[in-house]
Amino acid sequence: MNDILPWLYDSLIALTLLWIAWQTLSTRDLFKAVLLFIVFGLLMALAWVRLQAPDLALAEAAIGAGLTGALLLDAVGHLRVPRRPGPRK
């Protein structure tokens, strides 16, 4: 009973991370992919915390959640034109 909560939390975070990673790669909407990437960074920081690496969590929080998000959203704003579905290979 004592171990089930950390185990539950860790597996929840790992599964959500994998799911977000898959969705980020497979979505065709750039903006959605950027948002999912921001959320991925956030959950990655939480995963670093569980792996006893608060330094990495701090760097991930500062870079991943804040700056990369703003940079990528800025890039999406520059692209502006909605991505047309390209020819499928």
Partner: peptide
């Protein structure tokens, strides 16, 4: 501290969204 940095920087993405997207 990590939570503090999160709280400070999380708003950045929203501001970037509003201003640029």
């Amino acid at each position: 501290d990590v939570a503090l940095v999160f709280a400070l920087l999380a708003a950045l993405a929203t501001v970037a969204f509003v201003k640029r997207v």
